[in-house]
Amino acid sequence: MTGPVVIGSERSEAGLPAAMAVLAAGGSALDAVEAGLRRCEDNLADHYVGTGGLPNAQGVVELDASLMIGSSRAFGAVGAVKGFPNPISIARAVLEKLPQHNLLVGSGAELFAEENGFARSELLTEESKALFRSALQPSAESVEGERTAAQAGDERYRESALELVNRFAPHDGPWGTINILALDSAGELVVGVSTSGYPWKYPGRVGDSAVPGAGNYADLRWGGAACTGRGELSMRTLGARAIVADLARGLDPFEACLAMLAEAATLPDEFRAELRCLALTPDGRHGAAAGQDGSVYVVMTQSSTEPEFHPRKVL
């Protein structure tokens, strides 16, 4: 054990200083991960978590988040939550106050949030609304022109709408789920993830961020891991769990992350997109991998004066 450390995916630098402040004061990894991810969720410049997240295909922001504790493998998560800006805190409430369950989604998660005093707020900011509207501008493939039958017109409208949604892509710049992994002075390891999911996703879609073993996994014996990017691939490979299993077999964090990406690369997927991962061990070693050059992850220790950017290994 080399002392407290916290690592995160791209854009976690908005929250890592808050997480390290908790750890440096002797606080728990659980408190640190929640504090760090709340800062990321409240960052209005980030359109892939919390307030300001990009909406689903109906123009509604839906959020997923989870937390896992390495010593007990206790897990709490929420999915497809609307109207609550900090899903990571609701996930923690599930973990601590509803231990008979691991995951709440949709209206049930929102009811639980209300029962526990979480305040509702508008998640779709003017900027994220503008990004959504710009993606909906008319195109040559819009449904217009002569109709021969109402039923045929309705069918074509649905097909064209799906084609339009399938053409949507995230805006330029870093994007995706945010992962934060923390190791505290007592040796506890916690992994947390938060996301607004794929932009323009089908309403009700829940990705890997809310699924134990897929986007998030922690086992204090070996380490913790988390994924960001093409969540459907990490769900199909149980990516985070696979990384921890390889840590248990003796691979270092970089090797374990690369092995998971190599496995995911063998799967057929017509919607294949970037998948990234990172890992942290109980003795403070860390590593990350991606499919693109120039990808980084973020690290802070007690001696850090600011977030430090480290290169990911590239598959």
Rank of each mutant, 00 (worst) to 15 (best):
M1T: 15
V6H: 04
E10D: 05
A14W: 01
P17L: 14
M20I: 09
G26V: 10
A29T: 12
E34M: 13
R39I: 09
D42L: 05
H47D: 10
H47A: 15
G53V: 12
Q58V: 03
M68Q: 04
F75A: 13
I90S: 13
A91V: 11
E96K: 05
E115L: 13
L124E: 07
A130V: 09
V143M: 03
T148P: 00
A150G: 08
G153W: 11
G176D: 10
T177A: 14
I180P: 07
L183H: 08
L183F: 10
S185W: 00
S185M: 01
G192H: 02
W200L: 11
V206E: 00
G213M: 04
R230Q: 11
M235W: 00
A242G: 12
L247R: 04
R249L: 13
E263M: 09
T266C: 05
R272A: 15
A273N: 04
A273Y: 01
A273G: 15
E274H: 08
L275E: 06
R276Y: 00
P282G: 10
A290W: 00
A290P: 03
A290D: 05
D293W: 00
S295M: 12
Y297N: 07
Q302R: 12
Q302S: 15
S303Q: 12
E306H: 09
F309W: 05
K313E: 15
